[in-house]
Amino acid sequence: MRYEIRIEGHLSETLANAFPELEHVVMSGQTVLFGTVIDEAHLYGLLTRCQSLGLRVMEMRQLPE
């Protein structure tokens, strides 16, 4: 399954590297991380990673295949 996670603010390259399995793009005050998520555990892991890095998740949704 593919997901995208919208994060508030522009993420630095350094911190974007903390999500090596996802691609990212910076746009209008947000950073969008997107890519393939293996399973639910991975999904929750990504959320926890955002939290532990002090990132504010604005939106998270599944993308059509």
Binding site: G9, L11, S12, T14, L15, L55, R56
Partner: peptide
């Protein structure tokens, strides 16, 4: 005025 994520930017 900047749009960076707060902790990321400030810590750097």
């Amino acid at each position: 005025a900047d749009h960076s994520t707060v902790a990321d930017f400030l810590l750097a």
